[in-house]
Amino acid sequence: MFAEAAEAADAVARQFAANAAVLDALAERLRADPPRFIVTCARGSSDHAATYGKYLFETTLGLVTASASPSVGSVYAIKPQMEGALFVVISQSGKSPDLLRNAEIAKAAGAHVVALVNVADSPLAELADTVVPLHAGPERSVAATKSYLCSLAALLQLTARWSGDEALLAAERGLPEALRQAWAQDWSAVVEGLKDARNLFVLARGLGLGAAQEAALKFKETSGLHAEAFSSAEVRHGPMAIVGPGFPVLAFAQDDDTGAGTAAVADEFRQRGAPVWLAAPGQDAGEGLLPLAAASHPAVTPLLTVQSFYKAVNALAVARGHNPDLPPHLNKVTETI
Results as ranks from 00 to 15, higher is better:
135 H>C: 12
58 E>L: 11
56 L>P: 01
138 P>A: 12
82 M>G: 11
142 V>G: 02
108 A>L: 03
123 P>E: 09
134 L>M: 10
49 A>K: 02
137 G>Q: 06
149 L>D: 01
88 V>D: 02
87 F>P: 10
114 V>K: 00
140 R>G: 08
106 A>H: 11
113 V>S: 03
143 A>N: 00
52 Y>S: 04
114 V>T: 04
60 T>S: 04
95 K>M: 15
124 L>T: 01
100 L>P: 02
106 A>S: 13
147 S>I: 10
82 M>R: 02
131 V>G: 00
66 A>E: 11
87 F>Q: 01
120 A>I: 15
121 D>P: 00
110 G>T: 05
55 Y>F: 15
48 H>Q: 12
55 Y>H: 10
113 V>F: 02
118 N>R: 05
70 P>I: 07
109 A>I: 10
73 G>T: 09
101 R>A: 14
42 A>S: 10
115 A>G: 05
96 S>Q: 09
72 V>Q: 10
101 R>G: 14
72 V>A: 04
68 A>P: 09
143 A>Q: 04
142 V>D: 02
75 V>A: 07
104 E>N: 07
51 T>N: 07
54 K>L: 08
82 M>H: 08
143 A>H: 06
72 V>F: 08
121 D>A: 12
95 K>R: 13
148 Y>P: 01
68 A>G: 09
65 T>G: 05
41 C>N: 15
138 P>V: 15
54 K>S: 05
107 K>D: 09
41 C>G: 12
138 P>R: 13
52 Y>V: 04
71 S>V: 10
102 N>K: 01
131 V>W: 13
112 H>D: 08
51 T>G: 05
106 A>D: 09
127 L>Y: 06
145 T>M: 06
99 L>F: 03
91 S>H: 01
132 V>T: 08
142 V>F: 15
91 S>M: 02
63 L>Y: 08
106 A>Y: 04
126 E>I: 00
130 T>K: 09
62 G>M: 15
103 A>Q: 12
134 L>A: 06
122 S>M: 09
75 V>Y: 11
52 Y>R: 00
107 K>C: 05
139 E>I: 10
